[in-house]
């Protein structure tokens, strides 16, 4: 093959049923958006796994840096008061 240019990579998100959110399920190579959607159907929904598909070019995704994980996410670790279980209430109103 003379042209060695690979088709771009796309990330695939599938909504498994109405009412649920789209969830990332994998990636694939496709020449354009239309083909990406069609291929995503064949590759990721052969058993009625979805009712809707999103595809997005992988190079368009902006992600947090794994190296910053501690800096980004650890500050929430000691904020237990953000959870309902932090508060002890009398039994009679504990279903609150």
């Amino acid at each position: 093959m003379s042209d060695r240019t690979e088709w771009p990579l796309w990330e695939v998100f599938v909504r498994s049923k109405a009412g649920l959110d789209h969830k990332h399920c994998g990636s694939l190579h496709a020449a354009d958006p239309k083909l990406a959607i069609q291929m995503a159907r064949d590759v990721y929904t052969r058993r009625q796994e979805g009712v809707s598909i999103w595809v997005v070019r992988s190079d368009q995704i902006v992600a947090s840096d794994p190296g910053d994980k501690a800096m980004y996410f650890d500050p929430a670790e000691d904020k237990v008061y953000r959870h309902p279980t932090f508060y002890e209430l009398p039994k009679s109103v504990d279903h609150m």
Binding site: M1, D3, T5, W7, A31, D32, L35
Partner: peptide, 11 residues
């Protein structure tokens, strides 16, 4: 190969 090339050209 021609299918891949045609799809790229179309895109």
């Amino acid at each position: 190969a021609w299918v891949r090339e045609a799809a790229t050209a179309h895109a």
